[in-house]
């Protein structure tokens, strides 16, 4: 059981961004991808989720044996168990967080099943409390007028409520102060489980002090060029990315 990416190539317009990416995240593990700006980290998240701007030209993504890319619509992939916490979550004016998550939960149910509203709210409140999100947020429109930290907490709340098989966190640490970072990390750590895999995309090592990964990958030019343990992240933090690029050029 894993989220398995094989030889993935993807374009935006005529530009190739992912150039034969290979990665396997076994269920129960947390993997981190680090890389410079423009290396294709966020693209990977969007391509897997089915963003309409990107075209997959080659390769496969297999989610617990299911050919994810065969599902055309992003909502089908989401319901298959993939969740992406975005770096810049969209605002949905006029739609309250409670109604939004409720619609998502409802969509996950079989067609004739009706969501139990009481149970839903109980669950929502427990998870909001854990993320220190005030109760009055339920009636606020999704991400509208939220601070950076509030947006990220709201993403993790959705992650907690939708309980996916695999979660991709795209630069979840960006725009967070240290307190918010702790809250968000605690939230994610509480969701770590043998039944769930995580892919944490980040620019900085700092987040990995809080969400400790099992494996760290380095992405350069749309490929994973190096993998290692937590120490690799520390080395990247101390020495930058140049040595990785040199090394990979030398072996290429």
């Amino acid at each position: 059981m894993s989220l398995h990416i094989e030889n993935l190539h993807a374009n935006i317009g005529d530009r190739e961004i992912l150039r034969g990416l290979n990665l396997e995240i076994p269920k129960g593990e947390v993997h981190a991808i680090m890389g410079k700006n423009g290396s294709g980290k966020s693209t990977l998240a969007k391509v897997m989720a089915g963003h309409p701007d990107y075209e997959v030209t080659k390769g496969t993504v297999t989610l617990d044996g299911l050919a994810l890319l065969d599902l055309e619509e992003p909502d089908e992939r989401a319901r298959a168990g993939l969740f992406v916490a975005f770096q810049y979550p969209m605002e949905v004016p006029g739609v309250s967080i409670a109604n939004f998550i409720r619609a998502a939960r409802q969509a996950a149910l079989p067609e004739d099943a009706e969501l139990d509203a009481v149970e839903y709210y109980q669950d929502l409140y427990v998870k909001m409390d854990a993320l220190k999100i005030p109760r009055n947020f339920t009636s606020r429109a999704v991400n509208e007028g939220f601070s950076g930290g509030e947006k990220k907490r709201c993403e993790i709340l959705q992650l907690a409520m939708l309980a996916p098989k695999y979660a991709v966190l795209d630069e979840t640490d960006s725009g967070l102060d240290i307190d918010a970072l702790k809250i968000v990390s605690d939230g994610v750590n509480a969701l770590r489980s043998p039944d769930r895999g995580f892919l944490v995309i980040t620019h900085y090592q700092r987040l990995l002090d809080y969400i400790v990964p099992d494996v760290v990958h380095v992405m350069v030019n749309g490929q994973i060029v190096l993998s290692g343990d937590k120490e690799l992240a520390l080395k990247l933090e101390a020495e930058g990315y140049d040595w990785v690029e040199k090394e990979t050029l030398a072996t290429a």
């Binding site: 989720a49 089915g50 963003h51 309409p52 619509e73 992003p74 909502d75 989401a78 319901r79 969740f83 992406v84 975005f86 979550p89 969209m90 605002e91 949905v92 004016p93 006029g94 739609v95 109604n99 939004f100 998550i101 619609a103 998502a104 969509a107 996950a108 429109a141 959705q158 939708l162």
Partner: peptide, 23 residues
């Protein structure tokens, strides 16, 4: 916006409805 909502598992038509109701 629609992509964001669909990523949460909400089908496109329902996402449109939500956005319109929000409006």
């Amino acid at each position: 916006q629609i992509f964001y909502m669909q990523q949460r598992g909400i089908p496109k038509a329902a996402a449109m409805s939500l956005a319109v109701n929000g409006f």
